[in-house]
Design a protein around this nucleic acid. Structure first.
Lengths: 337, 337
DNA sequence: AGCAGCCATTGAAGCGCTTCGACGATTGCT
DNA sequence: AGCAATCGTCGAAGCGCTTCAATGGCTGCT
């Protein structure tokens, strides 16, 4: 294993000079720099991460806590995680992957041990038990998601309240009066996940303002669960003509079931989805949807974190404005009988 | 920040004693141990990861290289990643998340810097460019996937060749003579991904042995792509009654399209999928399938890696035996006209 | 010519931990 | 009772790096 000292010797300079060449924290003459860089290349030198972390108390690692749950739509999480990893690398950081399993202990462990310089938390609940810990430490962190109290926190998230409102407005403009919301699995609401509750709030508020009737039904994944939910919806509100779906795994079953019920999309019923663009465009009907900007959220989270680590940036709540794209799954409400 | 020395002082012992209490590498009297543990708890001490890594040249981190690609079915990857993370934690290791982006450089960087003690590589190609590097280093590694040449490597994977054979056998037993394979996206084959090619090989070999006609069509994700593929299949081989699908995102569209073509499942055509159990049971038809044991693969990979890190274990290729579960999507071939 | 100021470079201290050899105190043996 | 082996604890060295104060050689000014 090649060390700094060996590089220094090979280049005929002192160890500190090599260090300064590497970090650029002091000016180095062009000739020396070149000689050092040459030696580094020749010897195949890589700075030792542990030693560097010890001496500088900087690990250049960002911890990312992803949920372990199986009741969430995983691809979105994965997409965010990958975006975070890519963005972090661009700033010279690596990603430490923590699963939700350990819960708050993971936060303690990571901040306590200096394993990571900062944290990104996903799958935030409204009253998340990890938040007090984050507030109590000086380690920078960013949440992807929005808890109830954002005091002293930096959050990045899609504006799900506005998303809900936007979906309702779209359907209202098309003349729909009875709207059903096919939501995430019940467990997601039971643990008060921020995004789910906020969307619901946006939906309900706007529906009330526009004097629409709104039915919300959580829905497990799987064809049968969707079938049961849909049957219940048409049973309780036969006049339902508008659907808002915030549950990617329910989308394709729903479209299939609507066909089976003899309801044409978009002539008889309209469907608006909250899902990644890819899902919306690859479904059996090209879906009118509000995009879930996974990449952007991941990127923004990293940018804010890096800003904090560099002493720039402050606590801030970044809500990305939702954008609704009209595709083939929504149209004017059918004339009332 | 609390240090070892402070704990030692608080407990009235030397620093090395505290270290030995933590590592258990020397015997410590019960009373001393208790006193030290008490101090650790009281002061909220967490060992500094960097210092530990420097002194012991062990980071207790395993690097996991996941593909960045979008043409693969992500949930499986995610499931493996999460299983790896959980299993690793159980052995006291954390996971460093590397995206495929950096390619071989990431391997160099991680092994060179001592950032991680070992690596797990996913999405292995038959002739992967990262392999020479792994063979050239003394750092333990495990592949999830199977390259062409496994000399000097440890691999964990589902036996995809046997998987292919199993699917063909099942359909053959039911009397199907014309079988179509709906495969992964063309790009997956173009870069010679191990699992895709091996499955195909298993399918073809067994089909030849059993004297069946086999048609293989790669297929992009998305309803339209599946529609085009299916149309082509029925055009080229109108007598096709058996489908093997190794492309999770094509499953639901395929089932919907078969209905549209007026082919009942399983009365007119049988479908065998290679996919996670969850997908098979939640589809609109409960699918006969060979399970993709993501959890088990992740777990096994970690176990082998830990064994290597402990000086136990050796290079080995672990091929998990495929298991075919018969569900509602396969049945006897219809009588020939 | 003489001095201030700057630039490039260095030596040394120290980051917090592990680990090795050493040492006194027990213990078990003859 | 006397000696060897064992046990529990300690001090010190050192892991590979960063960083600070210090140094010497310049340049440019008066």
């Amino acid at each position: 294993m090649v060390t700094l000292a060996e590089v220094a010797q090979h280049a005929g300079v002192s160890a500190s000079t090599v260090s300064y060449v590497l970090s650029g924290k002091r000016s180095i003459s062009a000739t020396t720099r070149q000689r050092v860089e040459e030696s580094i290349r020749k010897l195949g030198y890589h700075p030792n991460a542990g030693a560097r972390a010890l001496a500088s108390s900087r690990s250049n690692i960002i911890a990312l806590m992803v949920p372990l749950r199986t009741d969430m739509y995983v691809p979105v999480m994965m997409e965010i995680a990958v975006a975070v990893a890519s963005a972090a690398r661009a700033y010279g950081y690596d990603i430490l992957l923590l699963t939700g399993e350990e819960g708050p202990d993971a936060v303690r462990r990571v901040t306590g041990s200096g394993l990571a310089d900062a944290m990104i938390l996903m799958d935030v609940e409204l009253d998340d038990e990890r938040l007090p810990l984050l507030r109590g430490t000086h380690q920078p962190s960013v949440l992807i998601g929005l808890p109830a109290d954002t005091e002293g926190l930096t959050c990045v998230d899609l504006d799900f309240r506005a998303t809900g409102a936007l979906c309702v407005e779209h359907l209202a403009e098309l003349g729909h009066r009875d709207i059903a919301v096919i939501g995430e699995a019940p467990a997601v609401y039971e643990r008060h996940t921020g995004f789910a509750e906020r969307t619901l709030d946006g939906l309900r508020t706007r529906a009330r303002e526009l004097d629409l009737r709104l039915l919300h039904r959580p829905c497990e994944a799987g064809y049968d669960a969707v079938a049961a939910t849909l049957a219940r919806v048409f049973d309780e509100r036969p006049d339902t003509t508008g659907f808002v779906v915030q549950n990617e795994s329910a989308l394709e079953p729903l479209l299939a079931l609507l066909r089976r019920w003899g309801r044409a999309v978009p002539e008889d019923v309209s469907v608006v989805a909250v899902c990644p663009e890819q899902v919306a465009t690859q479904a059996s009907v090209r879906l009118t949807s509000v995009a879930l900007p996974a990449q952007e959220m991941g990127r923004r989270a990293v940018e804010h974190l890096v800003a904090k680590l560099d002493g720039r940036g402050s606590d801030e709540v970044v809500l990305l404005a939702p954008e609704l794209t009209v595709r083939a799954s929504s149209g004017p409400a059918p004339a009332r009988p």
